[in-house]
Design a protein around this nucleic acid. Structure first.
Lengths: 324, 324
DNA sequence: CTGAAAGCGCTTACAG
DNA sequence: CTGAAAGCGCTTACAG
C-alpha cells in the first residue's frame, strides 16, 4: 500500500494533523518539527492522495479549460499552445487542469456543468470570447469562478478576461506600413464577426484617418481584386497565405508589388516564402495570465473583475518592404 | 450544501449503501428499489462527488494523456485532434482526462510520476512512439497501464498500441501513382528517424520493387532537384507544401509536371492550390481506439498487449494526375 | 435483496 | 506549537 500521512506521523513521532500542517507549510508549526516531518516524508517517499485532499478540503485545485464548440480547433495552433502554457503554469502553482470539449454548445455545457457539480474543478478558463452563450450565462448566474481568454462582447465589467489590445494591434499594423511609405492600404478579412475583427479593424481605421491615408475594407473571396493599394493588413496568417496566392494569380508579388502584414505568428507564417511579417500575440503569456487571474479570483471572494492586456511583438519577416 | 448519497437515501427510505449500489447499477438491487432511488436522485438533483468516489473505490476513472516533450506540438493539428477525440470517447465511458505536457522528457516524466503517485489517474495514453524513453521505461517497470499511439521501436510485444499500417500506407501511395501511369517516383522526407518514416519508406520500396519501377529517396532541403521523376510521395502535408514551392522555383508545376501524394490530410493539405491528394489517417478513430484499449487493459489484469490497426483513406484532390 | 459499519486519506475547528 | 477527534461523501465486505 501507498504511504499515508499516518505512516509519516508515526515515523516522525508526531500526530497526523501535524503532518498535514507541514504539508501546507503552515506557519503554526515550528521549524524543527517541519524538518523532522519532512525528513520522514522523504525517507518514506510520501505522496499525498489527491482525492483525499480534495474531499477533506473541499478545494479541487484544478481548473477546467473550455475549448470552443467547433470542430476545426485542431487547425488553429492557438489552442494547443495555450493549453500547454496553461498546463505548465498551473503546475507551477500545484494545480491541475481538466478539459472540456464538445461539438456543440449544448454538449459543452453539459460537460462544464458535470465537471463543476461533481466537484472536479474549482472553475474554468474559457478559450473563446465574443457573444455570450449558455455556458457563460450559466457560470455567471451560479457565481462560478472563470476567466475568459479574449474579450467578451457583453458584460465586460463583470468578467475577468485576458486579451491583447486588438485596437492597438490594428493601429500598429498601419504604423509599420506607413513607415514603409505606403499610403493606400486595405484591411483584408474573411469574417466580419467577433471582437477581434471589430477592434483590429477599428484600430486600422483610426490610424489610417489620423495619418490621412486611403483605406478600404476587402472581404476576402477567391477572386477579389486590388484597386491601387500597395499594402494590406490581413486578419490572420492563414488568410494571409491565401491572399498571397490570390495576388500571385493576378500577377502581384509580395512584397515587391504589395506589402502584407498579418497577425498571430503561427506556423503558417513561416512555412512558405515570403515568410510573413506578423504580430506575435504571446500566447504563452495569455495562458499564464489566465491561470494567475483565475487563482486570484477563486481565492479571493472580493476580487473584482478586471481585464489584463498582454503585450504583442512585431515579427519582421519577408512580406513587408518599403514602397518602391 | 450539495446533496449527498445520504439525502437521497433518506428521501427514498433506504440505506446509503443501497443508493451507492443503484448508482453503479448493481444487479443485486431490485428494479423496484432502483426506480425509487432514481426518482429520489432526480428530485433532489443528486450528483456524485468525484473525490469521494475515487477515495473510497481506489479507482480514479481518469486517463492521463501524455504529449511529446517538444515545443512544436501546437503546429501539428494531430495533437489537438486526438485530444478532442480521446476526451469525447472517454466521456462516453464516464471517464475523465488529465494531461501531461513538458518541454523535456525529464519534466514530462516528473508530471507523469506525480499524476500516478498522487492517484489522479489510473494510467496513461502516450501520444508519441518511436524509441523508448524514461517514461515508457518507468511505466513498464512499475506495471502501470498505458496505451501508445504509434508504434514503439522496442518491446512491441509488451506494449498495447494503436497505429495505422504505415507500411501499407507506403505501398498504397505507390499504387495510386502507378495507376496514374507514373514509373519514376521518389520518396521525399525531411527526417530519416522514427518508425513512421521507416515503415512508409519500406512500403514504398517494396511496392516499387514489386512493380519494377524506378525509385529514389530524396532528403528534402531547399535546393533539392528532381532527376526524371514524374511523381513524388512526401512524408506529410507540410513537407509537401514546401516541395510544391521548391518545384515551382525550378519551373515544375504540380500536378501538370509532377504528381504528388502525401499523408495526414491536415489543414495544410487544403489551404493553397493545388489542394493535396493525401491519406487521411483517421485520427478520431486512433483516439477512440486508444481509449477503449486502455479501458480493456486497465480493467483486466490478464489482458495481453496487442496492436490495433486503424484504417486510412485516400483523399483525392488536385495534386495527382495521370502522367502526360 | 438490503442494511449497518468500517474505512479510504486527508483537513480543520477545538482545546490546551 | 501540537494533539485528538470529527468529518468530507463515498464503497464494500459482512451479515442476515
Amino acid at each position: 500500500m501507498a504511504v499515508t500521512i499516518k505512516d509519516v506521523a508515526k515515523k516522525a513521532g508526531v500526530n497526523a494533523s501535524t503532518v498535514s500542517r507541514v504539508i501546507k507549510d503552515s506557519s503554526e508549526i515550528s521549524d524543527k518539527t517541519k524538518a523532522k516531518v519532512r525528513k520522514a516524508m522523504q525517507d518514506l517517499g510520501y505522496r499525498r492522495n489527491a482525492a483525499a485532499q480534495i474531499l477533506a478540503s473541499g478545494k479541487t485545485n484544478t481548473i477546467g479549460v473550455v475549448f470552443p464548440p467547433v470542430s476545426d480547433k485542431a487547425s488553429q495552433p492557438f489552442f494547443m499552445k495555450i493549453l500547454t502554457s496553461i498546463n505548465e503554469t498551473a503546475r507551477d502553482y500545484n494545480v491541475s487542469v481538466a478539459i472540456a470539449t464538445g461539438h456543440s454548445t449544448k454538449e459543452l455545457k453539459k460537460q462544464v456543468e458535470l465537471q463543476y457539480s461533481e466537484k472536479r474543478v474549482d472553475g474554468f478558463i474559457i478559450l473563446y470570447a465574443g457573444k455570450r452563450d449558455e455556458i457563460r450565462d450559466y457560470l455567471l448566474e451560479n457565481d462560478i469562478p472563470f476567466v475568459l481568454v479574449g474579450t467578451p462582447s457583453e458584460r465586460q465589467n463583470e468578467i475577468t478576461h485576458v486579451d491583447n489590445d486588438n485596437m492597438l494591434l490594428g493601429r500598429e499594423a498601419v504604423r509599420h506600413l506607413a513607415e514603409l511609405q505606403h499610403q493606400k492600404i486595405a484591411f483584408v478579412t474573411d469574417t466580419t464577426e467577433g471582437e477581434v475583427y471589430e477592434e483590429r479593424y477599428q484600430g486600422f481605421k483610426d490610424e489610417m484617418n489620423r495619418l490621412g491615408l486611403t483605406k478600404r475594407l476587402i472581404f476576402f473571396n477567391k477572386d477579389f481584386m486590388l484597386e491601387d493599394e500597395t499594402a494590406l493588413v490581413a486578419m490572420d496568417d492563414v488568410l494571409a497565405l491565401k491572399v498571397v496566392e490570390r495576388l500571385s494569380e493576378i500577377g502581384l508579388k509580395v512584397p515587391d508589388d504589395v506589402s502584407m502584414i498579418t497577425y498571430n505568428n503561427s506556423i503558417f507564417a513561416s512555412i512558405l516564402h515570403p515568410y510573413l511579417t506578423t504580430f506575435d500575440i504571446h500566447i504563452e503569456q495569455l495562458g499564464a495570465a489566465a491561470v494567475k487571474k483565475f487563482l486570484d479570483l477563486s481565492n479571493d471572494k472580493n476580487f473584482l473583475p478586471e481585464k489584463t492586456i498582454i503585450p504583442f511583438e512585431l515579427i519582421l519577416r519577408e512580406s513587408t518592404k518599403i514602397k518602391k
